[in-house]
């Protein structure tokens, strides 16, 4: 049987979740024995070259490009995982969700106390740029997500256990201590 294929991406995230993937340390060698990577920052493959079994998404969607990449992942991956707080709930970027997008743009490019060089008050409106969404959306509000791995970032062990469980088909162990509220 051929090895399962994995793809990953970071949308409106900070790459912290990808760092946490790398935090599985020497088990990354085992991981490369178990799976094959396709489109991912880890191997720098930019476009899907074959059907993928597991897609891992870090970050939510704050602009039109995020949405397109996410939809592309959904199209090419059998299983999609939302990895981390931002993908699951929008995370820190979603702090702007209570504020109208016009105000955010004004603060960032015109009125904010750190805006000094932009004396001509130029707003980013080049057609090449992604378009900003009215708010930051968690991934499952755009496409169907199959699994969620919470954390900021999710612990490396959780990522490892989840991937192994998915690949081997064994149930994921979730002891009470891990999910208890307080």
């Amino acid at each position: 049987m051929s090895k399962p294929v994995i793809a990953t991406t970071s949308l409106a995230g900070c790459f912290g979740c990808h760092m946490s993937i790398l935090d599985i340390d020497e088990r990354i060698l085992q991981l490369f024995d178990l799976v094959e990577f396709n489109k991912s920052p880890i191997d720098d493959i930019k476009k899907f070259t074959k059907p993928v079994d597991i897609g891992i998404i870090e970050g939510g969607c704050c602009n039109s490009e995020n949405v397109e990449v996410l939809k592309d992942f959904r199209k090419n991956c059998k299983i999609l995982i939302s990895l981390g707080e931002c993908a699951i709930m929008g995370g820190l970027p979603a702090l702007r969700n209570g504020i109208p997008v016009e105000e955010c743009l004004h603060e960032a490019y015109i009125g904010g106390p750190t805006v000094q060089l932009n004396t001509k008050h130029i707003l980013p409106n080049d057609d090449e740029l992604p378009m900003l969404l009215d708010k930051v959306y968690p991934c499952h509000e755009i496409v169907k997500i199959d699994y969620y791995l919470p954390g900021c970032p999710p612990r490396a062990d959780l990522i490892w256990d989840a991937l192994v469980a998915l690949i081997t088909g064994d149930p994921l162990k979730l002891p009470y201590e891990l999910i208890k509220f307080d």
């Binding site: 997008v101 743009l105 707003l123 080049d126 378009m131 969404l133 959306y137």
Partner: peptide, 11 residues
């Protein structure tokens, strides 16, 4: 969802 930001930046 992109309408508001596009209006504001003028694109």
């Amino acid at each position: 969802s992109v309408q508001a930001s596009c209006n504001y930046v003028g694109r």
